[in-house]
Design a protein around this nucleic acid. Structure first.
Lengths: 138, 138
DNA sequence: CCAAACAGTCAATAATTCTTGACTATCCCA
DNA sequence: TGGGATAGTCAAGAATTATTGACTGTTTGG
């Protein structure tokens, strides 16, 4: 099912098209100009390959939900480090919030801040490490 | 630079190879068996296409850092809904933590929990919405 | 030592993808 | 009314990717 999505974004021009359309809806000719190509057939070919990732609205091309997901995948590869950094920052803030709260008012911390933030951090760690494998062989 | 990575994972067999190797390091023949193919040339061809995403260790194939990133991209497409759900849950927990803290001890909340968690939520929202576009045409 | 299993390579062919360029049709405004 | 801009389609050929199958070494157990 998702194999053809990777096929769809496996050509530089199609990635370019997704990036352009994520910023601005465009018609056929404007897109052609933006891509710096002369051949209409070429653009037609690539637009057809992007079926499911783009659609039209008021005569202009826009990304679909899956189009944004595909772009997301591209950014995942480009900015993979982000996830790890976000995770580390999350943990640091968790620790800071808890230490500050515990020192200021132990009881409140123990019964509200600590359980709530700990549930969150467990969930987030599970998501980051188990589901997304952010620390696997990084 | 990353274009060839998408080309690399644009074939079902290569996605299968990445998934198999992410779970267990394997030699040539074991991989062939696991994939249910007869032709050595075929496996050789696809392994070569995966250059940069896999490597060998003790005579067995394993994923590289980029291999895991590519697999990550595959999961991003498969489990895209997760991000939105995680974001919403994060916001809910932020609100709960803040309301509870504010009611129990207003001053502590105002000077520690609120600023720290608000900085976090701004950062996280920026990351989720601006950088990753999780609400764009979902 | 022999055979079977492992770990590939490579050339030829099949299949698919990409590009070109010629063509159609509509709209608009001068 | 005619020319330029928009919005495509399609067939043919070029280029690339995928598969097959025959081949080469190495290792390992009996």
């Amino acid at each position: 099912m998702e194999d053809e999505k990777f096929e769809a974004i496996s050509h530089p021009m199609r990635i370019k098209i997704l990036e352009i359309l994520s910023k601005k809806a465009m018609g056929f000719s404007e897109l052609k100009r933006e891509l710096g190509i002369e051949s209409s057939g070429k653009l037609d070919f690539h637009l057809k390959k992007l079926k499911g990732l783009i659609t039209t609205e008021d005569g202009k091309y826009i990304l679909t939900k899956d189009g944004y997901a595909a772009l997301q995948a591209i950014y995942t590869i480009r900015r993979y480090g982000w996830q790890k950094r976000a995770y580390v920052l999350n943990i640091i803030i968790y620790i800071i919030v808890n230490i500050l709260s515990a020192f200021k008012a132990f009881n409140i911390w123990l019964y509200t801040v600590f359980p709530a933030s700990t549930i969150w951090i467990i969930f987030y760690s599970y998501w980051s490490i188990v589901k997304r494998g952010i620390f696997k062989r990084m």
